[in-house]
């Protein structure tokens, strides 16, 4: 499994914000519709299909003129080591592949949107028309065919790159170190190491200045309240049910022991 492990890295410092990746991702998904669902090319190019924009742009501002930080960040699935979406999916439609990609199986998805509730990064998007939920698939089909992800292929800069997980991590680390030297501030490779025990490491990592973690949506301690609560309730609930059953069992034996001298033991009526 380890040999096939791939990764993608988005370098926010080398990014020139041309959004070729965003457009190409959408185009590649339309191509998938053509290939796999037999939809006509023209039709796929006419429809909005916003749920197939697996990369979306989130712009944010902080500060006050002229000391303002303005960021147009790319939002995408992080492909967590411990995908919370996978854990919660009642249809078992989500899997973590050998490549590292976390996939929603479109045929299995029932559109319950539990993954949306569970994702610590608020990534999956539900489409009313198809009644299913979608998110970045790390171009798993392309990776398995020896091609780069659509976003990496599109990047005219050298900001999104993909390859084996170890290669990507090494390149990312080298870049982060260089940026630290040049700009004199801390740069992180978000996801190269486990972010926390909840999500683990990420197969789609991000290079960013630590001070920009917020606008680039790179929380230090991503947690899914829903996932945690759900697990607690399931375990607690199972325990409570078990305790109830055990209690009942005890009570039954208690009845059996004392039923003779019970007013409720209507022996003659049985």
């Amino acid at each position: 499994m380890k040999e096939k492990q791939m990764a993608v890295c988005y370098d926010s410092q080398a990014c020139i914000k041309c959004f070729a990746c965003v457009v190409n991702c959408s185009v590649e998904n339309r191509a998938r519709l053509q290939r796999e669902r037999g939809t006509g090319v023209e039709k796929t190019m006419m429809e909005k299909l916003p749920h197939l924009n697996y990369l979306t742009i989130e712009k944010s501002e902080s500060g006050v003129f002229p000391d303002v930080k303005s960021v147009a960040a790319l939002k995408h699935c992080q492909h967590c080591e411990y995908p919370k979406c996978m854990d919660i999916c009642p249809a078992e439609a989500i899997s973590k592949e050998d490549t590292g990609a976390v996939l929603i199986n479109r045929d299995k998805c029932v559109g319950c949107q539990s993954c949306i509730d569970a994702c610590p990064y608020d990534v999956p998007v539900f489409d009313r028309e198809t009644g299913k939920t979608y998110k970045c698939i790390m171009c798993n089909d392309r990776l398995e065919a020896g091609l780069p992800t659509a976003c990496a292929e599109a990047c005219p800069s050298v900001a999104i790159f993909c390859g084996t997980a170890s290669d990507v991590r090494a390149e990312a680390k080298e870049r982060a170190e260089r940026y630290e030297k040049v700009f004199g501030k801390k740069f992180i490779v978000y996801g190269a190491e486990p972010v926390n025990s909840h999500v683990g490491s990420l197969s789609y990592m991000t290079i960013a200045a630590e001070e920009n973690a917020d606008p680039y949506m790179l929380p230090e301690n991503p947690k899914s309240g829903v996932s945690i609560a759900r697990n607690v309730i399931k375990i607690g609930g199972a325990a409570a049910i078990g305790a109830a059953a055990a209690g009942i069992a005890v009570h039954v034996s208690h009845w059996k022991k004392h039923k003779e001298d019970s007013v409720y033991h209507h022996k003659d009526e049985e």
């Binding site: 370098d11 410092q13 080398a14 990014c15 020139i16 914000k17 041309c18 712009k59 303002v68 930080k69 303005s70 960021v71 147009a72 990047c155 005219p156 800069s157 050298v158 900001a159 870049r175 260089r178 940026y179 030297k181 040049v182 700009f183 200045a209 001070e211 920009n212 606008p215």
Partner: peptide, 30 residues
């Protein structure tokens, strides 16, 4: 030029923007 600029940024290019507007991509945060 766009491709050259991106490679420059990877190499640690610093930018100063003289513009009535602060655009994205020319160095949003640095």
């Amino acid at each position: 030029w766009g491709a050259m600029f991106g490679r420059g940024r990877k190499n640690g290019l610093k930018t100063v923007v003289i513009d009535p507007r602060k655009p994205a991509g020319t160095g949003e945060t640095d």
